[in-house]
Computed example of a mutant assay.
Amino acid sequence: MMVWRQRFERCLTRGWYEGAGWLWLAWPLSLITGLVVRWRRYWVTPASLPVPVVVVGGITVGGTGKTPVLIALAEALVVQGHKVGIISRGYGGTVGEGPCIVQRSSPAALVGDEPLLIAQRANVPVVVGKNRYAAATALIEAFAPTIILSDDGLQHLKLPRNFEIVVLDGERRLGNGRLLPMGPLREPAARLDSVDWVLVRNGENEESAFHYQLEGFEHRHSAQVLAAEGIAKQWQGLRVAAVTGLGQPDQFFSALNSLGLTVQSHAFPDHHSLTEVDLATIAADVIVVTEKDAVKLCGINDERIWILVISTKVPKVLLRRLGAQFNQAEAVPCSTL
C-alpha cells in the first residue's frame, strides 16, 4: 500500500511542477476547491486574542522549510525580549482537537514530529491541537506569552493574526499555479498579495531569502558530533544512505551531495515514521536522517544512524519590521482577513 502511495505522490508532484497535461482531468475538482476557499473566506470570522499572532504558513502543499524558519524566528524574537509561545496543528499525531502541551519527551506519535522538533530546538512553549484558536487560548493561560507564532495555520481562518508570513521554495515556487488537486496550491496565487511577508528558500533577494546552514552530524546512539566540513573524508570507503520522510526529500539529498558524499537515496512519504523494518532493508554502513525523522525513532537502536543538523536565519529586515510592530506593551488590532 505504501509503495503505491509513494508512486502516486511522486507522479502527482512531478505533474504539478513539470506541467503535465493529464492534470486537466482534475480541473473540475480544482474549481470546487476554489469555491470552498472563497466561501470559507467570506463566512468564517476570526475570533480575538489578547496577544499578537504571527502565522508562518504556506499556500502550497509539501515541504518549503517552515519548521527551520519558525525555530529561527522564535529564537530571534526571544533575543528581542519577547516571551514566545508556539501553536501547531500537530499533524501526524493523534492528539486530535487538543489542546495538548508538548514536552521535550512527548512521543511524536501523539503530538506530531514538527511540533516536537520545534519544542526541542526552540526551547519555548509549544501547544498543539487541530483547533488552533483553542491551542492559542490554552497557551496564553498556561504560559502568558507576549507573542504567539503559529506553525502553519494560514488557512485556519478562525485564528486571528496580526502578521502573515508565507514560505515558498525558490526552485518550485507555485508549480503550475493551479489549485488542488490540479496543482499544488491550497489558495489562489493572488493570496500572496495580501500577506505581510514572503520568504523564499534559496532565494536571491536578501529581503526574502533564507538558506540552510549545515551544522554537522550527530550520532544518535552516542551523541558524538562531526563537522559537516570534511565529512566525505571521514566517511570515505563507507556505504552511506540518506533516508527520510520529508515532503521535499531532494533538498536533503542535495545537501548531502554538496558535502561530497555519494549516497543511496531512500524517500518515504511525508511524516512517515521510519521503522526497524525500513532500516533493516538498507545495505549501508551509515544511515543519515533529518532531525524531523530522528524525533520519531523512539525505540530504534540502530547504531548506523546519524542526524544531519541544520539551521537557518531569517532576513534582518523582517526582524526589524516585527520588532517595530510588536515591541510594545499591548497587541495591535488583528489584521482583517
Rank of each mutant, 00 (worst) to 15 (best):
R191V: 04
V286Q: 14
P99I: 03
D270F: 07
I231L: 14
D152I: 08
L185F: 02
A255Y: 05
A242R: 09
R40V: 03
T137H: 02
L168C: 09
D151N: 08
E171V: 08
G183W: 01
A324M: 09
P52W: 13
T262P: 00
K233L: 14
R178G: 04
V288W: 01
P28W: 07
A108I: 05
W197Q: 14
A223E: 15
D285M: 13
S258P: 07
V102K: 04
L238K: 15
I165K: 08
I231N: 06
G65Q: 00
E97F: 01
A294C: 05
T67A: 06
V124G: 00
K233N: 14
V195M: 05
H211M: 08
P181I: 07
Q103W: 03
R89V: 05
L180T: 08
L29F: 15
A72N: 02
V36S: 10
G90Q: 07
L73Q: 04
G112N: 03
M182E: 15
A190N: 13
D302F: 03
N205T: 10
Y17D: 11
S273E: 13
G93I: 02
D152Q: 12
H211C: 14
G58W: 00
I305N: 13
W306N: 05
Q328G: 00
F268E: 06
N202A: 12
L157W: 14
G92I: 01
L192H: 02
G237I: 05
L319E: 09
D285T: 06
P46Y: 09
H211L: 10
V167S: 09
E18R: 15
V198Q: 05
V56E: 04
A76D: 11
P184L: 10
I287N: 03
T94F: 00
P28M: 07
F143W: 05
D250K: 14
A119H: 00
K233I: 12
H266K: 13
V295L: 00
